[in-house]
Amino acid sequence: MNRWLSRSYLTLVYLLLYVPILVLVVFSFNDARTGYEWGGLSLRWYHALFGNRAMVQAMWNSLWLALSAATVSTLIGVLTALALHRYRFRGKQLLNSMLFIVMMSPEIVLAISLLALFLLVGIQLGYFSLLLAHVTFCLPFVVITVMARLSGFDERLPEAARDLGASDFTMTRTVLIPAIMPALLAGWLLGFTLSLDDVVVSTFVGGPGYEILPLRIYSMVRVGLKPEVNALGTLLLVFSLFMLMLSQWILIRSKR
């Protein structure tokens, strides 16, 4: 392909991807009430945002949920990846396929299946049901991230540690865990972001007692325009950008 042509094409697509985001950021500082006209610079929507107690509560709820879901899914995901990598056991293929299916299936299918389960078992919809659901859809991503790291791992390293006198547990602590640390952190960050962003699953398994940010945004944007959403979106964008850069930095630094 022509070099010049391919570069201008890339530029064009990136523009299209970023224009809406830029518009959002610019309009978050817009003083005008209507949302489509420019009324001068202002931080009024940020004030409005933080003046709204329910909104602030939803932010904290979301952060806490994302934090706990990412942590639990990382714990389980790392153990799963280690088990898949190190042990031979019956049904390994089945375990792999289940994780793959969770990752590939449309979120809404996971959402209704979990709703059915929660209602059948009698789990009240709220923080706990959200946590279980979020951990479930984050899990495969953590496993994949850690497995990718382990697949490039020198099989002799654990043996070397054992040879030098480390028990299986000490070896895991001193050799395996440090080796997968970057992937572990990257998986955690990914899980955190996925949880913070989720609308589809949370719509089904969330409850009125525990309002989270995406659901609050959802109810705001369904009808008309709400300039506060611009401000909130900008904050979320900056936050995700920070998280993404952090995870890339961790991965790149670990490769050296």
Partner: peptide, 20 residues
């Protein structure tokens, strides 16, 4: 640059399209 949007809240991005 391609995955930055992917890490950004999808509701918010959909909403941004509405502005346009």
């Amino acid at each position: 640059l391609l995955i930055v949007p992917f890490w950004t809240n999808s509701l918010v991005r959909t909403y941004a399209l509405k502005l346009i």
